[in-house]
Design a protein around this nucleic acid. Structure first.
Lengths: 125, 125, 125, 125
DNA sequence: GTGGTCTAGACCACC
DNA sequence: GTGGTCTAGACCACA
C-alpha cells in the first residue's frame, strides 16, 4: 500500500477502512484484520495500525472483542456518515465559500463547473 | 486574530494578505506592515510572519526593499489569481464533487448551504 | 452472557459462580458444570473457563475430582465471605468515600442512587 | 514519580493532572509542562506523555497552541467533574451495590461504615 | 523551542 | 493467537 505524505498514515488507513464500510465490502459484525496481520500486509508498523484501530474504536466504528479481534459495529455506517457530513459542512464548505469570494466566483459559475464535471463523468462511462 | 487548526498559521496569514490584495485594499506599490508590526498586531511570533513574507516573496507577490520594507509587486494580482484559480479548478473542485457524491449531497442542497452562509454573513455585518 | 470491559472475563465468570454459592443456588458438594459445558453455555473460550476454575481451585473454593469434575468445597462459603468482606472494607470502601468527597456527593445522595437502583431492579423482575 | 503497575502509566499521569486542576494548582489558561520536559521530569518516555496529552486534549481538558505548548481549557473543571460523576454513577455504583448484595450488607451497615470513616477522619485532624 | 508521527522491538495480560 | 502499553530513537513541520 502506498501513502500520500501530507496525511498521517494512520489516518489514511482509517479512511481506507471507512470507505470499505461505506462501500459495503465490510459490513457490521465483520472482523477486521488483526493488528499484526494488517500491519504486515500493508507494510507498516503494528503501532501505527494500533493507532488507527484505537481511533476508530473511540469513534464507535469498530469494537474490540478481547483476545479475538476488532469487529465493525452495527452503527458504523451511520456514525461515519454523520462524521463526514458535519466535517463537510463545518470545515469544508466555509473554506469553499471563502475561496469563491476571494476569486470572485459566484454560484452560477460554480454550477457551470458542476455541469461540465457531470458531463465529463457521463462521457467516461 | 484567530486561526484554524488544520492549516499552518503562516499560510493563513498569507491568505489574509492575498485576500486584501484581491479585494483591492492593498494595491501594487503599497507597503505592507513590517514583520514586527504585523506580528504584534495579530499576536503571533515574528518568525511566523517572517515565514509568510518569505513565502509571498518567493511567489513574486511582494518584494523586499532593503531597509525600507516589503511592497506589493505590480504583478501580484495576476499571480494570485492564476495560482488560486488553477488550484481551485484542478484540485479543489474535483474533490468537492467527489465528496458530495459520497455523502449523497446534490447541487440543490449545496445551494441551500450557500444561501444560509450568505445570510449568516449579512447578519454579522 | 455479557461482560464488562474493565474486568477480565475469567474474573467475571468467577464472580458469577461466587454469587451462586453465596446465594445458595450452589452448595458444598455440588458439581459445577464441566469446562466445555460451561464454555459453550456462556459462549466463551474453554481456556477462559479453565482459567476461572484454576483460579477458584487455588482459592480453595472448588476442588477437582479427577475424571469426574469440579465440586464446591465445604469451606467455600466461609472463604468467599472472608475474601470479599475484608477486601470490601479495607480496599473498596475507603476508595468509595474518597471518591464521594472529591465529587462532593454526600451520603443522602448515595442513598437516593441506592433507591433508584433498587427500584430499577424490581422493575426488571 | 512512582507508578502503580495495575493502571497504565499514561492514565496515571492524566489522573495526576486532573487532580492538579481540581485542586486548583493548575487553573484555566495555565501552560502545562512540555512533552519533553514532563517526560524527563517524571522519568518516562516522551511518547507516553504525548499519549496522556492527546487523551486529555480529546476530552477537551487541555488544548494545544501550536509551537507553544498545551494549556488548560476554560471548561476543564466542568468536564472533569462531569466525567468523574458519570463514571461514578454508571461504573462504580452498580459494582458497589452488586457487591453489597453478594455480601448481604444492607444500606444501614454501609452507613455505619461511613460514620466510623468520618469519625476516624475527624480524629486525625 | 514546540508537538506529531513513525519505526523497531520488547513485555504483558488475556482468550 | 489477540490487543495494549512502553521504551528508545529518529525525523518532520511549525512557531
Amino acid at each position: 500500500m502506498e501513502f500520500r505524505k501530507n496525511l498521517p498514515i494512520y489516518v489514511q488507513i482509517a479512511d481506507y477502512l471507512l470507505e470499505s464500510i461505506l462501500s459495503g465490502s465490510l459490513t457490521p459484525g465483520d472482523k477486521i484484520p488483526s493488528v499484526r496481520e494488517q500491519a504486515s500486509q500493508i507494510e507498516v508498523n503494528p503501532n501505527t495500525v494500533m493507532r488507527t484501530y484505537s481511533y476508530l474504536q473511540d469513534q464507535g466504528i469498530i469494537q474490540n472483542k478481547r483476545g479475538i479481534g476488532y469487529f465493525v459495529t452495527d452503527s458504523a455506517e451511520k456514525i461515519i456518515d454523520d462524521m463526514k457530513k458535519t466535517d463537510f459542512i463545518n470545515e469544508y464548505l466555509p473554506e469553499l465559500f471563502k475561496t469563491m469570494e476571494m476569486l470572485k466566483i459566484d454560484f452560477k459559475q460554480l454550477e457551470q463547473y458542476y455541469q461540465t464535471h457531470k458531463a465529463k463523468q457521463n462521457g467516461n462511462q
